[in-house]
Structures are given as structure tokens and as C-alpha cells.
Amino acid sequence: MITVTDLHKSFGTNEVLKGISNKVDEQEVVCIIGASGSGKSTFLRCLNLLEEVTAGHILIDGEDLTDPKVNINQLRSQVGMVFQHFNLFPHKTVLENITLGPIKVKKESKADAEKHAHELLEKVGLSDKAYAYPSSLSGGQKQRVAISRALAMTPKVMLFDEPTSALDPELVGEVLAVMKDLANEGMTMVVVTHEMSFAKEVGDRVLFIDEGVVHEEGPPEKIFDNPQSERLKTFLGKVL
């Protein structure tokens, strides 16, 4: 599904990603953990070119994102993304937030898009909020709308950038539950997270990114119960 080869990313002279190669298979849930500043969010943002790649290649379904000829809007519409700070459109209702992409990018009719949006809202338990504005929602509700907005594009893969980090502790559960459902339905997911229990429970594979490289990777049992490197042991010691 996603193949990353020797990915490098620099901001000016500061090299944040120092050569990452990895693969994400179809229906796989990959969780990325690491300290802040390790490059894990930057890595995720490279996967839909929110960050311009300095060197290396990213293939999604065989199409190379780094190829200047590639239609980036077309590719992005197939890669859903959920942000730490939700980034809902405050001037649009929940329904309009969700239908904007399908109507403008996929050229769906308004009726079709709205029907799909209502289904998605029902799925995330927010059918009563279709006509509300984002400012009237709680953080957990906002993030569930943001997930619906991404899903409305029927993406092949979903990227999550610390989706629960900005939430009050009691609201984390409702968002993780939606993500868990999604994983069970077979969605391919890449999740940057600080929720170790989620990574353990839902993740098929965990990547530990440190200083711009994948320092250690493996199934969650191995990463959490039997870490090999000192760095990972220190990191887990701090967060668990």
C-alpha cells in the first residue's frame, strides 16, 4: 500500500528525517511512537506531502508522490488525515465540513454527499450534530467529526497525527473507540500516538522513531514487552 524508500527531510540545515525506509501493507495498522522532536509527525506529514520531501521516494499504490508529474490533489484525496488540533472549518456546519471534499473534489452530488455524511455521523455517534457548528462541540466530538470528514473521501489509507493529544483525558476514549472500529473494519492506518495502550491493543506493528530514523520496530508485544535498544527502554520507562 505505502512504500517509503530512504526518506530524508531537512528544514534548512536541520535534518529531521535521516533516511527512513518502511512499508505499510493493506489493512495494516502501524503505530508510530517516539519522543517529541524525534521526527515522527514530520514522517507522517511527508506521507501526503504536507511536507516537501528532501530526498527519497514514497509510493502509494504504486504511484510515486515525489514525482513532480504526479497529480498531488488526486493522490491526497485518497489519503485521509486527522490532525492533533482537529482543524475543522469553523465557518461551516458539521455536515458542510464533511461534504466539502466529496462535492468539490470527487464531484459527488450534494444529496449523495449528505447521505454518506449522515451515515458516517451515525457511525461515530454524532447524528444529532449534523447542523451544529464546530465551536459548539467538545474536543472529542470535534475529532470524531474530523475522522468522518476524512472518511467521506473513502480513502485507501488514514493517517492520524496524535489524534488524542489535544483532548481532555475523559474524552480520549470516545475517539480511540472510533479508531478501533475503523481498524476492525480493515482500514489501513498509520497512527502517530502517545497512547501506548492503543498501540498495544490495536497496532499490528509499532515503529519507534528516534533522531530521524526508525530505531526499532516490530509487533507491539515485542516493542513493549521486550525492547532491545537502550533508547527504546529509556523512552518506554518515561511514558509507561
Binding site: L75, S77, V79, G80, K104
Partner: peptide, 15 residues
């Protein structure tokens, strides 16, 4: 983040 959310949906720069 607003621009990023829009571009992520596949909207063009102008859209």
C-alpha cells in the same frame, strides 16, 4: 491547519 486540512482533502490551492 485550515489550509492543511483543505489540501489534505484533495482541494487545490485555489479551492
Amino acid at each position: 491547519g485550515q489550509t492543511e486540512a483543505g489540501r489534505t482533502l484533495g482541494l487545490s490551492h485555489v479551492q
